[in-house]
């Protein structure tokens, strides 16, 4: 500021060169913040994990070798790099456990995402079509569960779903069943827990997409001879697709790596990749293999998403 103060004030609309350069630098800084964030909190940890995945397990502190010794300088690091091995990745292909865990996780995530979409869509639709003055309250109700700890909410489901739980007592009281249902410790309980926990992540983007939709489009469709149900599939649903895609990503990705819900609500016989990772890390204390499992998991998720986004972009460019 002191520099520009001494200079004659440039006419409005024309910035002095120094001020311009300063603005440029400031803009650069603003643009850089998210990149620095990504670098520090995503890329750096990721490369540490990748590095560990190329190491060998050892009874030491930390429990793998080689460990980068910065005192050795560049040549020391190079010596360490020469010790890197691809064995951990090869190992993952040798035991069917790993790809089966990945597949099970992907399957559970896929089924959950579809279930959540089916449950969330009518809710989001109802919210978007509710009277304007009600919408903030409805939105609040969707967000409200976040005010309670995630773990407590999952524990609450144990109380509902267990043999002597609220659900069974209610159904027995109704006379619908005469013996308590075994829901806890089954995949059903896992799906219920996942659908419940991730529902808001689907509702919010769907609501955002549906709320900005112009309702006269539906009138136009009706006017052109389209009954309401068809109009939903031809107009409403295609226009909400960006919300559907965003919601599915928001749900699918974390569910693939989900650990807590299957651990608390599920049985012992469903092995998801989160559990396999846990076993490698904690039971086998094999950080390198655990890291390799994590790296592959990330690639499985990131590659299709990047591909999908590229396709979207290409399509958008083609249309232009």
């Amino acid at each position: 500021m002191a520099v520009t103060d001494t200079q004659p004030t440039p006419p409005p609309g024309i910035a002095a060169p120094a001020a311009l350069a300063k603005r440029g630098r400031l803009r650069w800084l603003v643009v850089a913040i998210p990149y620095v964030w990504m670098l520090l909190l995503f890329l750096v940890p990721f490369f540490i994990v990748v590095k560990i995945s190329f190491s060998t397990t050892a009874i030491a502190l930390p429990p793998y070798t080689p460990v980068f010794d910065l005192s050795g300088g560049l040549s020391g690091i190079w010596d360490s790099v020469k010790e890197f091995t691809f064995d951990n990745y090869v190992f993952l292909t040798e035991d069917s456990l790993y790809w089966r865990s990945y597949l099970t996780s992907l399957r559970i995530a896929f089924v959950s995402t579809v279930l959540i979409l089916i449950v969330a869509y009518p809710i989001a639709y109802g919210m978007a079509r509710a009277r304007k003055e009600w919408r903030p309250s409805l939105l609040m109700l969707v967000i409200l569960p976040f005010w309670t700890s995630f773990l407590i909410r999952v524990y609450a489901w144990i109380g509902i779903l267990k043999q002597e739980g609220l659900l069974n007592q209610f159904l027995l009281w109704l006379g619908v069943i005469d013996k308590p249902l075994v829901i806890m410790s089954t995949d059903w309980a896992v799906y219920i827990g996942i659908v419940y926990s991730y529902l808001p992540f689907m509702i919010l983007p769907l609501y955002a997409a549906l709320e900005k939709m112009d309702e006269t489009l539906l009138e136009a469709a009706a006017d052109l001879g389209c009954p309401p149900i068809q109009a939903f599939w031809k107009i409403t649903f295609p226009l909400s697709l960006p919300g559907v895609v965003a919601g599915c990503f928001l749900v699918f990705i974390p569910v693939v790596g989900e650990f807590v819900i299957p651990d608390l609500l599920g049985g012992s016989n469903t092995i998801m990749i989160g559990r396999t990772l846990w076993n490698e890390f904690f039971n086998n204390r094999d950080w390198p293999v655990a890291s390799a499992v994590a790296v592959i998991l990330l690639l499985i998720l990131v590659i299709p998403i990047v591909y999908f986004q590229n396709q979207q972009q290409k399509e958008a460019e083609k249309a232009r």
Binding site: L97, N269, N279, N283, N284
Partner: peptide, 19 residues
């Protein structure tokens, strides 16, 4: 040792999940 531990963990997973 790590090798035995890995066998043990693997067997245990098999016991629990059948796979």
């Amino acid at each position: 040792d790590p090798k035995v531990q890995r066998v043990l963990t693997r067997l245990w997973t098999k016991v629990k999940t059948g796979s």
